[in-house]
């Protein structure tokens, strides 16, 4: 069976799960939660089967080019989201991970999906260890990002609903910036990507898929959601109060996701990468743009952990740091491949 069809089925599952979680939250229907989770699990299992089939047909793990990397990361994000919420239902986070997986798959579909044999540099078991472990770390960073976004969203809703809110002006401004700014950043970066791809002969037609399959629907949905949230802010505030944990618990969940992802990313993305680079290129570190941006990702999350654990910072500012960390992670994944050439350029 063609794995593209199975990936398609998996995406349909994620969309249905997202609709289910949204209905569960907005209609306050308790009985929709477990079926939505079941559908999301079906999507993850289908995506895992598709990845295994692709691995089997290609003879190497699906981590060797942009398409394979993005579908794998998309699957990891959905899977990590479901595991992360196994003991504590967080329908808003689960809906968020579904959206993350759908968007990641949408972007992946722009790139060539044909199976190509591995170039000599990638023929190493370090490919499995380095990329897959780094992706698990990045999936956890994605979870932390969604939670951070929800944290800021909660603060915005609280400050809008309560006149004498304890949220100070700077914090409020930062939260508004995150809530409104992140979708804008996403749409802008996708537009930049589409514009870049439109100038590449090999993507002559595919980039339109990004415009109609990702940018247009996301723009319309985001505008609609923002409008509805503003119009029904009272009801949304009640929903947030009911379905989102309090700000303190959200902050702890963000820390938990980063505390899990940081060691995995450091070992997989940096240390295994160094060992492999040493074996393949004769030096463990060469300040290649990809290496440098992976280091920058590590440094940003290191700052997060230092200020949180040792200085006792928490709340809005650490949530903003977590968001900055994820933006850097995404730049390492996309920006470096397209904007800066280097030794890792083959994965573009």
């Amino acid at each position: 069976m063609n794995e593209t069809l199975i990936f398609g089925f998996s995406m349909v599952c994620y969309i249905l799960a997202f609709v289910g979680f949204s209905a569960h939250i907005s209609l306050n229907r308790e009985n929709l939660y477990m079926p939505s989770r079941g559908i999301a699990w079906a999507g993850v299992i289908a995506a895992l089967v598709a990845l295994i089939l692709r691995w089997q047909s290609a003879g190497h793990p699906p981590l060797s080019n942009m398409y394979e990397s993005l579908v794998t990361l998309s699957t990891f994000i959905a899977l990590t989201g479901l595991i992360f919420t196994r003991n504590q239902p967080l329908p808003m986070l689960e809906a968020g991970t579904c959206v993350g997986s759908i968007l990641m798959f949408g972007v992946a579909s722009v790139f060539a999906s044909d199976v190509k044999p591995l170039i000599p540099a990638l023929q190493s078991y370090w490919l499995h260890l380095h990329v897959s472990l780094a992706f698990v770390g990045e999936a956890l960073f994605a979870i932390a990002f969604i939670l951070s976004y929800l944290y800021c969203f909660r603060k915005v809703m609280t400050s809008a609903a309560e006149k004498n809110s304890s949220v100070d002006f700077l914090e409020k401004a930062a939260c508004y910036l995150v809530v409104v700014g992140m979708p804008v950043v996403f749409i802008l970066s996708m537009t930049l990507l589409a514009s870049y791809l439109s100038q590449q002969p090999s993507y002559s037609e595919r980039w339109m898929g990004l415009v109609w399959g990702v940018i247009a629907p996301v723009s319309v949905t985001m505008l609609l959601l923002m409008l509805l949230t503003w119009m029904y802010r009272g009801a949304v505030h009640k929903g947030v109060e009911k379905w989102l944990p309090d700000a303190d618990s959200l902050d702890k969940l963000i820390y938990r996701a980063i505390a899990l992802g940081y060691p995995l990313f450091t070992v997989g993305g940096l240390i295994f990468g160094m060992v492999w680079a040493n074996k393949a290129w004769g030096r463990y570190w060469g300040w290649d743009p990809k290496e440098t941006w992976a280091l920058i990702t590590f440094l940003v999350y290191s700052i997060y952990l230092h200020v949180r654990l040792a200085r006792g910072w928490n709340g809005t500012w650490t949530a903003c740091l977590s968001i900055a960390g994820f933006l850097v992670t995404m730049f390492t994944l996309f920006g470096v491949n397209f904007l800066i050439s280097g030794l890792h350029s083959y994965i573009g």
Partner: peptide, 24 residues
Amino acid sequence: SLKSAVILIAILTALATLGTLVPQ
């Protein structure tokens, strides 16, 4: 001081970023 360590890490991050943006 932890503040110094965090500032140093932040400066290193900024310099490393510049290093990838300015052709070397």
